[in-house]
């Protein structure tokens, strides 16, 4: 599935994370919360970004950090949300 500007969700999410935490490189499976690189404030910033970038609504049921722990996890979450919301 591709977004409007034909970038993969992974690319958009990875770009956002790398812009906001100074990381030279980011593996898509790397757990950024477990590594202590980001905290709950960043999680909220990330959720705010996801809502805007992918036109989804993040609710309390989604707040499991498993959903946002890595680029791939976040991307899966977005795709699942988009699937549910457009269905």
């Amino acid at each position: 599935m591709r977004t409007e500007n034909s970038q993969l969700p992974q690319d958009i999410i990875r770009g956002y994370i790398m812009d906001n935490v100074s990381l030279p490189d980011l593996d898509d499976n790397f757990d950024i919360f477990d590594a202590g690189i980001v905290n709950s404030l960043f999680a909220i910033e990330l959720m705010t970004f996801l809502e805007k970038a992918f036109s989804i609504k993040v609710t309390m049921e989604d707040l499991d950090m498993e959903n946002f722990k890595s680029v791939n996890a976040t991307s899966d979450f977005v795709l699942q949300k988009k699937g549910v919301q457009s269905a």
Binding site: A43, I44, M47, T48, E51, K57, V58, T59, M60, L63
Partner: peptide, 9 residues
């Protein structure tokens, strides 16, 4: 949430 907020317990 209906009004657009992110609510974080």
């Amino acid at each position: 949430e209906e009004k657009g907020a992110i609510v974080y317990p």
